[in-house]
Nucleic acid binder design. Structure first.
Lengths: 195, 195
DNA sequence: GTTTTATCTGAACAAATGTTCAGTTATTCT
DNA sequence: AGAATAACTGAACATTTGTTCAGATAAAAC
């Protein structure tokens, strides 16, 4: 056998990335083999190498794409206006976006140590850019005398860490709806920055 | 060659656990081989099996020990008194203790998916017990009308997630001292619970 | 000083790993 | 229709994996 019926690169390519994303998120990068990914797609392991140069760049591509899309989505959703509203927008956006793409977020936070030094630096750069978005809001709030935070850098990291925690317990159809979760966290963030 | 000079089980045993802890924390459980652990101890791979039945229980032992020690340390440090003081005590304890044992904490949070279903349940039980300690403080504060939190369960998870974030960026000799970090986070937690 | 026991080596095992590639077949182009 | 190309198979590769175990040597017990 060789080329299979209905095989197209623009179909198999995304399916490989999707399978890798789910498996990496569930079992971890190092614990997932190329054969498992291939099996999930319904293809032999060798076929993966028409779409990726190696396992490492499969991981990097997933992370890179996720970070770019995250930044792009925030750039589109972010609206200028009063700082309090901007902060609320960030909190709600972060929770919602990250829950929608929990697999990608999980990977982006847990598999950093499996990246090449060079790839790590690139991802880290994008993460810092995202953190800077939040810190920018906090700085503006402080400058306007509205927020009271002693260290905007630390506060930004603390808020993001707190929001990321949602990923570890939130389940669809659980006790709280998405909007309720957003509101609970916004309430805590709002008070933490002193407004 | 066989038994090496100065070989004692009460020395090699702890060294194996220490080496495994450091390697698991740095590279991840699945990415570390038994031969790497043995190499770090200065012993052949087969010798590890005098101290552990398999790789899985090496991981579980590390997690189990960590969780028990964490709970014991908190039980000793925790003092009854006003809720505000108890909450401050928890925040400072959590940051300090977790930074001192960052390798074990990292493993306990990142390698849950590599545990057997049964082992996972045991660790999860201990983690919940720890979260309950914090939630208990929050509940007391709410009952006394001192804290204003809408959902004590979520608030406990949010606070712990926020505090754990310190692990990802704190470095000894960095911009902020340990006490400064504790104080910054306590300030944010204090405000977040509305006091 | 001799025996017993604890501790480790070194080789071996089958299975699994990432990756390559010649060959085969479906699709697309002419 | 046939020729060219894209997509995949299946086998092979050198390593590495977790784990076992007979044998060897050091430490402890007598």
């Amino acid at each position: 056998m060789a080329r299979t019926q209905g095989s197209h690169s623009d179909i198999t390519g995304p399916r490989i990335l999707a399978a890798a994303e789910e498996l990496f998120a569930r079992h971890g990068y190092a614990a997932v083999s190329m054969r498992q990914i291939a099996g999930a797609v319904g293809v032999q392991a060798g076929a993966l190498y028409n779409y990726t140069s190696d396992k490492q760049s499969l991981l990097f591509d997933l992370m890179q794409t996720h970070m770019e899309e995250l930044l792009a989505a925030w750039a589109e959703e972010s609206v200028p206006g009063d700082v309090k509203g901007r902060l609320e927008g960030f909190v709600r956006f972060h929770i919602r976006y990250n829950l929608e793409r929990s697999d990608a977020v999980f990977i982006a936070y847990m598999e950093l140590r499996n990246l090449t030094e060079e790839n790590f630096a690139r991802i880290e750069d994008r993460r810092r850019a995202y953190e800077d978005q939040l810190e920018g809001i906090l700085k503006d709030g402080v400058a306007q005398g509205l927020f009271h935070v002693a260290d905007t850098k630390i506060a930004a990291l603390a808020v993001i860490a707190m929001l990321n925690g949602v990923l570890t317990w939130y389940r669809d159809g659980g006790r709280l709806s998405l909007v309720e979760v957003e509101t609970l966290y916004w309430d805590m963030v709002r008070k933490a920055v002193g407004v």
